[in-house]
């Protein structure tokens, strides 16, 4: 009954080959089936269909936001975005729950002096760009999510260039958590304000609207953008720092 030990690797590789063949066949079948189904998809008539037409025609008038994507995200379907930021909030708290360690990362070596100085000069400009993307979300491409990611990138670059302990000393995790929650609460607060001022949850606050095209136009959209921007930035930074944490037992 025993299989001779010499032939075992062969059998194993044969098994692996069989498995690979099986998977390839199955995946080819899926590809075929998908193609067959998707090729029957009629061409997209786009603007002739009801929903999109409405946004193109009255999006600007309704929301005052030049960027119609932002208008959809933070006004028409603002509840989705609230849900989204809640998802990030939940994901962050989950990751912190999974990875909670007592030890903080202590590594202060970082890269060379030249890189450090250069980054020192660059950082304000990166931050400025991030803030620009956030605050001009309703006027130009961009918005809270995109700007928030740029802000988080600063934090990540810090940990690479100056060593992972640097950022902790500047902004403690508590600060980041407060920033994140502050962003979420801004969103929620504007939503509740919508109930009291306009009678519907997350309704655009009309009295905040100024002349279209200026920075303070589009009602509550810029404020939501700012809240979401800080939230996403702080959240991603927290995720990053949770992941690079180490315990005493591991060498670093």
């Amino acid at each position: 009954m025993e299989i001779p030990t010499e032939t075992q690797p062969e059998v194993e590789s044969l098994n692996k080959l069989m498995k690979k063949t099986l998977i390839s066949v199955v995946l080819a079948g899926v590809a075929f089936a998908l193609y067959q189904n998707f090729s029957l998809m009629p061409g997209y008539e786009g603007l002739n269909v009801g929903l999109s037409n409405y946004i193109i025609e009255s999006g600007l008038k309704d929301t005052g936001s030049l960027n119609l994507i932002t208008a959809v995200l933070y006004d028409y379907r603002a509840f989705d975005s609230l849900g989204e930021s809640t998802v990030i909030f939940g994901a962050v708290s989950g990751i912190v729950l999974i990875l909670s360690r007592k030890m903080l990362p202590v590594s202060s070596k970082g890269l060379s002096f030249i890189v450090k100085r250069t980054l020192g000069i660059m950082t304000p400009f990166i931050a400025l760009f991030g803030l620009y993307v956030i605050t001009h979300g309703h006027l130009t491409p961009g918005g809270g999510f995109q700007g928030g990611v740029i802000l988080a990138a600063i934090s990540i670059i810090f940990s690479i260039v100056y060593g992972s302990a640097f950022d902790y000393r500047r902004y403690s995790p508590q600060t980041k958590t407060a920033l994140e929650t502050g962003g979420a609460l801004t969103f929620l607060g504007l939503g509740l304000a919508g109930i009291f001022m306009e009678g519907a949850f997350l309704h655009n606050l009309g009295f905040l609207t100024a002349e279209t095209g200026t920075l303070i136009s589009a009602g509550s959209i810029p404020y939501i953008n700012i809240g979401v921007g800080f939230k996403v930035g702080a959240g991603l930074a927290i995720i990053f720092y949770s992941m690079i944490q180490k315990t005493f037992e591991e060498d670093f």
């Binding site: 999109s52 193109i56 030049l66 994507i69 959809v72």
Partner: peptide, 18 residues
């Protein structure tokens, strides 16, 4: 799907899928 100030745009891509 972003309006440009002072210009009248006619043909946009659908912003909702984005």
């Amino acid at each position: 799907a972003i309006h440009k100030m002072g210009e009248e745009m006619t043909k946009f891509n659908d912003p909702v899928p984005q």
